[in-house]
Design a binder for these strands. Structure first.
Lengths: 105, 105
DNA sequence: TGTAAATATGTCAACATGGACATATACTGC
DNA sequence: GCAGTATATGTCCATGTTGACATATTTACA
């Protein structure tokens, strides 16, 4: 929602900011989660395609086997940064990464 | 490099792991940096397109104006997570995000 | 079944990133 | 120049994320 629209709604006496913002936030949060899941699945696909074990990939990107396992398990302690680094290190091409985004739509 | 290839090179007596790994790491690191820069520029574009001030966008995503400024300035304390959240919150469509990736190639 | 490799799970201390705040600087219309 | 708004920069400390490690579980295959 544009700031101007928000101001208009508020001027009109609308209780904006609670239910509506909540829904939008959920939507945005959902998009991020979907994106992460899609990228995670791309990591596993790419790693297997490159015939790398989790330990191999971990060495490549100077991480640890347990971290890779956590990435692929969707562990909440894993950042988007790490997921993308794993994707790149596993040999994924730019078009593979884009494909992961496409799956989000 | 596949683990098998690495093992073969090592078996052949190659000093793998230093210069080569260093170069590959740089390459991967460079890809990540390029990706971030591309997404950052997409954030600013998307924010302006939506006619949001940094303060507006910050409120939308429950962040702060200074964080948004740091995102757009490419501050090192900004994660990929935050960049993508800003991108989504600023109203970028999935195809805009993909386009940012494309620019990386 | 046994055994080795691969993967999963839990923990933790070190480091990265976060929002918030203060404040400086830049921009815009007057 | 001035006021109002937008953006930039620096700091703080709470929380998030990390690699490393130990260990458990699963898988592959003789």
């Amino acid at each position: 929602m544009k700031a101007t629209k928000l101001e208009r709604l508020q001027a009109d006496g609308w209780k904006v900011g609670n239910a509506e913002d909540f829904l939008e936030l959920n939507d945005e949060e959902a998009r991020l989660v979907a994106l992460k899941l899609s990228l995670i699945s791309a990591v596993k696909k790419s790693r297997l395609k490159s015939r790398l074990s989790q330990t191999d990939l971990a060495q490549r990107m100077k991480s640890s086997q347990s971290r890779i396992a956590k990435i692929e398990a969707g562990d909440p302690s894993v950042s988007l940064d790490l997921i993308v680094r794993a994707l790149i290190a596993s040999g994924a091409k730019t078009r593979d990464i884009q494909a992961a985004f496409t799956a989000t739509e």
